[in-house]
Amino acid sequence: MNNGLMIEVADLTKRYAGRAAVRHLSFQVGRGEIVGLLGPNGAGKSTTLRILACYLPATSGTARVAGLDVFRDADEVRRRIGYMPENNPLHPEMRVREYLKFRARLKGLGRRQSRERVGVVMEQFGLTEVGRKLIGHLSKGFRQRVGLADALVHDPEVIILDEPTIGLDPSQIRAARQLIKDLARAHTVLISTHILPEAEMTCHRVLIMHEGAVLAEGTPEQLQQQMSSGGQIIAEIAAPLEELRACWQQVAEIESFEVAPAAGDFFRCSLTPRNGADLRPRIFTLAKEHGWRLRELTRNQFSLEDIYMSVTRPDEEEEA
């Protein structure tokens, strides 16, 4: 029925009062994957997750979870999804165990079954000691765990977490990431984040979203490779300027170049290769032939951060 695909989004569009928050979005998530939606605030991540969690209807397009349409089979989809919204809203006046039991019952678990599952998730997230505490009195890290425990209490196949590490301190963030990674063994996880290292560290696959559309997609390594293949080569060479220019013009693999004076009698050359070729050995040979002094030779490796910045930059310049 779902040939291993747990989430299928096809041509999804959501308009709010004329403005499109999500436009023609399509992506798929396979069983057992952790996929991260990465993008600046306002890129349409939360809207996408809300549509998948059957909170908002899409304007057009379809979204399926475990082969079920999120609009027509909303209740069945809700049963299969564990969803934690942004900022993890909870009832502060309830006690941890009471809250989780209430949530389990709402999600359709029987009396005995809910007691059992609440015990399991409280154990899993280390909440056993605070079971009788009021949620309002818990620290943010514990509240986050309560939110995650709630998302998992009915043992859903798909877990959707909107900004799961927002507002946590670094050690809590690390703990939360580990929890998310552990989930992937038995569940399919879709998270949204605007923090790069988080996507880089926790996700098998990253979708970079911008203005409601996916701009780039792949594993963190793939994205890195894709972007680095066009990478510039930086060489700092001490040589007569005219000679350098003439030489770069002759090399066929160099599409364009820039030469700028650097400290000492060196020039900093930025070379853009044709077809993503790696020119470093060639430059070294050239330098040796001409008797130039070479003090730096690097090829730009893009981190996910550079990719993210380059992909989302146009928007930021507009805002500035």
Partner: peptide, 14 residues
């Protein structure tokens, strides 16, 4: 206001 409406309406409750 507190956002719990979203957690409530994403459970299978009509």
């Amino acid at each position: 206001f507190s956002g719990t409406f979203e957690t409530l309406m994403t459970t299978p409750v009509s």
